[in-house]
């Protein structure tokens, strides 16, 4: 049933789209993380002038489809002559940068809440202790809150990265030929959706599996206290009865 030569041919074509998929993911996740950090700080600032704009941003980007966001950036912005004549236009004209911008803006909204959850998870007593030891607020934030918040949010954040890998597929709707774009092209050329789907699906599952493993390994490396303690050395002295 599965035509093996055709399948292998398809797979090698699809693998050609992996670098673009990874590029889009890395660029949008890393720039989105920076924006998310700023948004999370706005959320926990306690200042309504910062908190409410961040809330609205998160609400708007989480409540609308990524596709709409991509189209607004790619097609929508061309409606404004001011933008078309600005220095930003060489970027905004490119589907590549539009996809990166839209995906980054989108992931920032989801990640901001994850970061906020991480920041809030640090026990108040630890912060009080740091302050009592004479640490300034920024120092306590950097040394006490941030490392623990990062560790706390990492499992949820690895899910977000995987969601972003999946979201890069939408870049194919604005002409980019990453894995899904190539898959769509192959399907419309060959009318053999099953083979193409299996090939593309296998690629995405592999990428997502590797990301999940990488994040899990990082999590273990960052939580020394949760690792199993090394087995105590079995020496005859300790085995010997105390009151020999």
């Amino acid at each position: 049933m599965l035509d093996l030569p055709f399948f292998l041919d398809t797979l090698s074509t699809l693998i050609g789209g992996v670098p673009l998929t990874l590029q889009l993911t890395v660029l949008s996740v890393s720039s989105g993380a920076m924006l998310a950090f700023a948004l999370a700080l706005m959320r926990v600032s306690g200042n309504p002038l910062l908190d409410y704009p961040a809330r609205f941003y998160i609400f708007a980007f989480r409540g609308t489809p990524v596709l709409v966001q991509i189209y607004i950036v790619y097609y929508g912005l061309s409606q404004f002559p001011v933008l078309r004549q600005s220095m930003l236009w060489p970027f905004l004209r490119e589907a590549y940068w539009c996809a990166v911008i839209a995906l980054a803006l989108n992931t920032a909204a989801y990640s901001a809440e994850l970061i906020r959850g991480g920041l809030n998870s640090v026990a108040v007593g630890q912060i009080e202790a740091a302050r009592a030891l004479g640490m300034s607020r920024p120092l306590a934030f950097r040394r006490i809150i941030l490392p623990q918040a990062f560790r706390q949010m990492l499992p949820a954040y690895s899910n977000e990265i995987i969601l972003m890998v999946k979201s890069t597929a939408l870049a194919s709707t604005i002409t980019l030929l990453e894995v899904t774009g190539l898959a769509a092209k192959l399907i419309s050329q060959s009318y053999r959706p099953v083979e193409v789907f299996i090939g593309a699906g296998a690629i995405y599952l592999t990428i997502n599996f590797l990301i999940a493993r990488l994040c899990a390994a990082l999590q273990t490396a960052l939580s020394p206290e949760k690792r199993a303690a090394p087995a105590p050395a079995q020496s005859p002295e300790t085995e010997a009865p105390r009151h020999g």
Binding site: T180, G201, Y204
Partner: peptide, 22 residues
């Protein structure tokens, strides 16, 4: 659950649309 949570939704839509069309 592993496959359909790990693969882009767009790809699934292509599979179903073109699959049932062919």
């Amino acid at each position: 659950t592993t496959v359909f949570r790990g693969v882009p939704d767009l790809l699934v839509i292509y599979l179903f649309y073109f699959g049932s069309s062919s």
